[in-house]
C-alpha cells in the first residue's frame, strides 16, 4: 500500500519534472539587457537619483509592489496576532534564566547589530541593501534580546505603534507624490540632491527607513507572538 502510494506520487512528480524540464530547455543564456532593464540602467540615475538601481526600482518605479509587500507583512502580523490571541497567558512554570554568556554577549552584540541594520536601510540607495534587509537584521536583534531577557515581559505596544505610524507615513508620502509631483510614490517631492550622498534620491532614504522600521517591527511582532505561545512543558 505504501509502495503504491509512493509510486503514484512519484509518477505525479515525474510528470511535473518533465514539464519543468520542457521549460528549462527553452532557456538560453542572456547576453543583453532587454529594453526595460536598459532604460533603468540609462535613465534610472537621472530620474531617481539613487545609485542602487534595484532600490530605485523597488521604492519608486515599482513602489506599488513595495506597498503591497509591506501590506502583506502587516497582514501576516495581524493574522498571527488574531490566531494566537488565545495562546497568551501567564506561564505556570518559571523560565530558566539565560546563561551569563548569552547575556553578556547580547549586551555587546545588540547595539552593533542594530547599527548594522540601521546602516543597511539608511544606505539602501547607495549600496546593496535596503529597508527589508535592514529590517530583517533589526528583527534578529530582537530575537537576541528576547533570548537574553527571557524572564521579562515585552509588550506589543511599541511595535504596533511603530508599524502603524511607519505604514501611515509611507502612504502619506505616496499621496504627497500625487499632489506635489507626477504620481503616487514619486520620489521627487524632495530634491534629488547630490548623487552619492546620504541625503540624495528624494524620498527614498526616508521611505526605506520607514520600511526598515516597519519590517523590523513586524517581524519582531511575529517572533514575539511565537515566543508567547504557552507550551505544555517549559524548555
Amino acid at each position: 500500500m505504501k509502495i503504491l502510494r509512493s509510486s503514484a506520487l512519484l509518477i505525479v512528480v515525474g510528470f511535473m519534472a518533465w514539464m519543468m524540464f520542457n521549460l528549462y530547455v527553452t532557456y538560453d543564456s542572456r547576453t543583453e539587457l532587454n529594453d526595460v532593464a536598459a532604460y533603468y540602467a540609462e535613465e534610472g540615475l537621472s530620474e531617481v537619483g539613487a545609485a542602487n538601481l534595484v532600490t530605485s526600482i523597488v521604492v519608486t518605479y515599482r513602489g506599488l509592489d513595495t506597498l503591497g509587500e509591506v501590506t502583506i507583512l502587516f497582514l501576516t502580523a495581524a493574522i498571527i496576532g488574531l490566531l494566537l490571541k488565545t495562546e497568551k497567558g501567564t506561564r505556570t512554570t518559571p523560565v530558566r534564566e539565560s546563561s551569563e554568556f548569552l547575556m553578556t554577549g547580547a549586551r555587546i552584540l545588540i547595539p552593533v547589530i542594530t547599527m548594522i541594520g540601521v546602516y543597511i536601510f539608511i544606505n539602501g540607495h547607495l549600496s546593496p541593501g535596503g529597508g527589508f534587509q535592514g529590517g530583517a537584521i533589526l528583527a534578529s536583534t530582537f530575537i537576541l534580546l528576547l533570548m537574553s531577557i527571557s524572564n521579562k515581559k515585552i509588550g506589543h505596544r511599541l511595535l504596533d505603534y511603530t508599524e502603524a505610524i511607519s505604514g501611515l507615513s509611507f502612504i502619506l508620502i505616496g499621496v504627497l507624490g500625487i499632489i506635489l509631483a507626477a504620481g503616487f510614490l514619486d520620489n521627487k517631492i524632495f530634491s534629488l540632491g547630490t548623487f552619492g550622498t546620504l541625503l540624495s534620491a528624494g524620498t527614498i532614504p526616508i521611505i526605506y527607513s520607514l520600511v526598515g522600521l516597519k519590517v523590523g517591527a513586524e517581524l519582531s511582532n511575529i517572533i514575539l507572538e511565537f515566543n508567547q505561545i504557552q507550551g505544555d512543558e517549559d524548555h
Binding site: V36, Y39, Y40, E47, T60, Y61, R62, G63, L64, D65, G177, A181, A182, G183, F184, L185, D186, N187, K188
Partner: peptide, 13 residues
C-alpha cells in the same frame, strides 16, 4: 490610465 511613480509603464506600474 493612471501612472504611478512619475514614470510611464512598462517602467512603472
Amino acid at each position: 490610465n493612471f501612472f504611478t511613480a512619475g514614470a510611464k509603464p512598462p517602467f512603472s506600474i
